[in-house]
Every structure is written in C-alpha cells, then in structure tokens.
Design a protein around this nucleic acid. Sequence first.
DNA 1: CTGAAAGCGCTTACAG
DNA 2: CTGAAAGCGCTTACAG
Lengths: 351, 351
Amino acid sequence: MTPKKARIKDIALLAGVSIGTVDRVLHKRGEVAKKTREKVTKIARDLDYSPNFIAQALKTRKKINLVSLLPEPTDESAFWKKHPQGIQKAMNELDPFPVMLNQITFDLTDEIDFQNKTSKVLSVHPDGVLLAPIFTSESITFCNSLTKKNIPFVFVDGYLRETQFLSYTGEDIFQSGRVAGQLTDMVTPEKKDILIINIARNLQNVHHLNKRIEGFLSFFPESGRTCRKKINLSISDPVREKIRKAIYKVLNKNPDIATIFISGSKSYKIADFIATEGIRSINIVGYDIHEQNVGYLKSGIIKFLIGQRPEEQTYKGVKKLFDYLSLNKVPEKIEYLPVDVVTSENVNFFL
Amino acid sequence: MTPKKARIKDIALLAGVSIGTVDRVLHKRGEVAKKTREKVTKIARDLDYSPNFIAQALKTRKKINLVSLLPEPTDESAFWKKHPQGIQKAMNELDPFPVMLNQITFDLTDEIDFQNKTSKVLSVHPDGVLLAPIFTSESITFCNSLTKKNIPFVFVDGYLRETQFLSYTGEDIFQSGRVAGQLTDMVTPEKKDILIINIARNLQNVHHLNKRIEGFLSFFPESGRTCRKKINLSISDPVREKIRKAIYKVLNKNPDIATIFISGSKSYKIADFIATEGIRSINIVGYDIHEQNVGYLKSGIIKFLIGQRPEEQTYKGVKKLFDYLSLNKVPEKIEYLPVDVVTSENVNFFL
DNA sequence: CTGAAAGCGCTTACAG
DNA sequence: CTGAAAGCGCTTACAG
C-alpha cells in the first residue's frame, strides 16, 4: 500500500491556506489568486493527491443521473431480454452510491420511435447514456447532440466509429463469425456443403450480419478448408410456410447440405422446420442463448450456439459510466467480450 | 426507488433517545435497558433501516484484513498464475474502501508447507480467508480452526462439504467432465476410440480428476454413444521419455484411437509428444487456458480446451468476503462458473 | 444505562 | 480573493 493518502487538509497546511481554498483550486471553481492556485496545484501533485471517493460520495447531494436507450424486448426479439438484467445487476451493486438510472426503450422496427425516444433521453438531462446504436444514421445524430452537450455515452451491441463514444463493450463481430465458421466446419462431414441463412426483416441488421458472414467465410481459406461449398439464402419474412418453401428449394438443388448456419438470433425458426420435417441429418449452428433457441440446442437439433454476453455488455457499460462520472476513470475505448461457445452440456451455466 | 432512507437520527427521534443509544442497540454493544432496546429495534425494523454503507466506510478506522491461501504458481503449475490476477482486480475495485489483502502461497506438492502456511494465516488474525482446499485433510483441520475463531472463509477451485464455508465459486467438476465428453465425441470419427490420460504426480488431484472422468464417461451412454471404446492411461511422472513409451504402448495395442482426452491441465505435454512424433491423425481435448496449452491449441493439435475461469473464481471470492464483512451480504453458498469451451478462434478473448 | 460531543474527508454556503 | 463553520451519516470515546 502507499505510505498514506494525502488529504485536502494536508495540502492546506503545506500551502498555508484554508481547506476551502484548496477545494476551490482542485475543482477550478471560484476565483483564486494565481499565486495560490499554482502553489496548491504543485503541492497537490507532489503529494499525489486524489480525493477520497467515500467522503465525496457521502457529502455530494446530487445523484448521478444515467439513462439507457435499448430496444424493447419482444417475443420476436428475445435477445434483448438479457440486457435489462445486466443493468439491474450493476445498479444493485451501485445501490449504496448516489446514482440512478432511467431505462428507456424503443421499438426495434421503428426509426421514428427511436428518434422520439432520443428526444426523451435528452429531455431528462442525463449525466451519462448507454445505448445500442441500432439505427445508424439516427444514432449518429443523437450521439452528436450528446457530444455537443458534453454528455458521455457508451455503446453496447455495436459501435459507430464516427462518434465520440466513451467506450464500447461487446462482441467482436467479425471474429465471432470466424468462430461460427470453425464450429460449423467441425460438425460438417468431409465433402458436405453448408447453407448460410440470413434472416433480416429490416435493413439495419444487415451490416451486423454481413460482418459476421465475412468472418465466417474468412475462416475456411485460412484453415485450408476451401473445398466446402457454401450456399446463401436470405429470408426477409420468417413465417413458417415461407421458410419451408425457401429451404426446400435450396435443399433440392443442393442435396449435400449437411449444416445450416444462421447469422442472426432466430435459429429456432429454422430448427423448428428441421424438427417438424424430421430432417435428422442436418446440423444447425447459430447465435444467442435465449429460451427459444435453447430448447433446440438441448434436443440436439442445434449443435452450437454462440453467445455474446448481453447482460455483461450492459453491466459493464453502466459501471464504466459510473466510474467515469464519479471516479474520473477513463475506460478502455473498446472491450471485446469473449465469444462463448455453447452446447447442450454447458448451456445451463449461461441461463 | 424507495421513498427515502431512514437514518439513525430518524430512529432516535421516534424513539425519544439519542443516536448513541440507537447505535448501541443496532450493534449490540454496551448495556441498554431492555425496554429501550426493544423500542429501538422495533422502530428500526418498521423504518426498514439499513446503515449507510458510505458513512460507515468513511468513519470506520480499522481495515478489513483479508488473506488468500493459494498454491504458488510454477512452470509446472501454470494454471495457478491466473488466480492472483483475479485477486488484484478485486482489490483494485475495492481500492477506495478500507480493505487489505495478504497473499500467502504454498508449495502445491508439499502438505507440510501447506500446514505451515495455515499457521501463518492464523497468526495475522484475518477477518476473512480465501483458499483452495488442495490437501483435503489438512484443509479440513484448518477450516475448523477458522470456524472456531469465527473467521469466515470462501473456497475456490473445489470445496469441502464437511466444513462451514461461506461460499464456493468455481467449476462444476462433474459437469465440466460431461462437456469434455461431448466435445471429445464431436471430434472423434465414427467407430474410432478414445484414450483418457490422467497425469497425476500427487494424490490430492485424484479426487478432482476422477470426478471429471466420471462426468466425461457419463456423457456417452446418455447420448446413445455407448459404442465408443475408451482406454485409460495413468502417468505419474510426466517426463518426455516416459510419456513416449507409455503412449506408444497403448497406441500399438489400440490402433483405432483417434482422440486423447487429458483430465488435467497438462495437455501440452501430450501435445508435445504428438507434435514431435508427427501423429497428425490424433485430436486432443484438455483443460485450462495457459500459455503452454494455448500454443498447441493455435497450431491445431489441441482441438478444444475447457476453461474454468480461474481469475473470476478469485475475483468473486474476494468480493464475496468483502460484501459479507462490510455489507453483511450473505452470498449464495455455491456458485458454479460457466464451463468455457475454447478453440483456436476464440482463445484470444480468454488470455 | 444514556447523552453530548468530536471527528472521518469532503462540499457548500456565508461572511468578510 | 479567502477563511471559518456547518453538515453528510455514522462511530467512538468520555462524562455522567
């Protein structure tokens, strides 16, 4: 441990001024004679002064006011159910401290709603914001307003390099695609083919999914598995009958398909098809550990699910905002969370 | 949020006594008239009083004094290098609070040294202890002394049900064996055999390893893969030449071995053999993400490594002790950490 | 058995 | 421009 922590009092003593003056210098508030200011600053630096966080928290009246802006979870977007849990966990831990957090959600399929909610966020004058930048251009606009108002913000689930974000915590999208490629390759017998399915109802997911597929495909040449044939299929409206038709069409043309890789979180829709049709010879590899997918993982139709730790993303995001605002700790700009490989045998640990 | 937190002052006001008296009742220290005591207790309960942790931390002079008792990491036991990192991380986070932690290590191969170190732990009069109960009987003795002295302790890396531990954070050993079984099965072609290798120089690991193998074997019948032949091999002194001889002997008798499963953390020793002999057709599945193993994972000789999050074990262990001692939070008795499935493509996230 | 007071390290008016 | 004082909620002697 360090010899002993310097206090305001110590600085005041050495500088021959009162603690009030020291405080004014340290917080750059109020008028202080240049000479005193310099003297105090120097001593503070010499003593390696840092404020006692506990005393500060005890004294400070005003609460830090955080806001999260995330998609509203629905049955169709079960993935987003985990995010509030991480927020809750962080807030529970921070319970003794003067912080509060307002959760605002928007409709994942509606840009206008998102825009409305961003105004709502701004209207509560937050000290910090956590958000998932689903709609690229609207998010950029929003982030720019935040920057203009000097409000720090952190991303989860993706980031926009063109904004002044404090930190991103989440998936390394490209690399997670590579992991998917490796696992898919592993469960596909020699000389068999792979079907890649993109389920995207709305455009904004495409960038995310494309990046994953890029990673997915990059795995094969680098590992000397160029021989595998890969077929692409896009489904925009994932209702039972359309899925059926679309897949049968592909399967009939490509009888050697042994594995289906789904780039998004709706593997269960494909698994459902495989199960009802009784096509036992086809494996599935997909994303995200939610109830609907997990059922098919346990029954063996889905072989691997890849997890991206949604609760940990929001948990860490909230903590970073707090640490930044109350302790002045600047986080790493980008923190990639581990890509989790989940099977029927270890899935219970992730629920 | 709750309406507003009750303070000692509020209780004192309602009870018509001074805050000193309230404090005495709350902390059960000093003599208080029965009547006053009951009155205060009731009011405190009614107001749902809980102390302001911040004020408490600010005021309290004495630091919480923690001790960790873990094996000294060596080249031969690289696994233990991660544990101090988790401790460090926890202590960094707790930096603003009045806590300190003393790390004491012992020789993993020496019961006597362990015993000496337990006395050392007791001699510093810790408020809480984190330990890895490597040597069963010596650990039980030690834990009993701790219990007698009313010192709470938490386990990592295994637990002894016969002791009064506060909490265990770590691997679900049996289940992690099952995961290993599943992965091994996955990389082993139809009708090929599996070699199970136990590397154990000293007895104490045997329980741990046996439990894993139990889990490993349990996977096969339940998933209808009873047909696979499994051969067992124990190596007590894992030097190059002995490994060579032992494995060749088994391989000659069992030419259909396609995968080797190593129950402990020394996969690299077997991988080294496979690599130098150029036996490309054999896969390896093993445990623990340390440098030596990771090299062979990346080069493709080891197909899967199973991780048990050693840093997270100690990180959470320390936090639980702190929360218990300073916030009176009683943790879950047993927290199994996820069994991580690690391949060459996602290993970088775990380093 | 109980109360009044000092103080943990900081912040916040207030008075000069 | 600067100092002295009050107070955040609690704990810790000390005096009665």
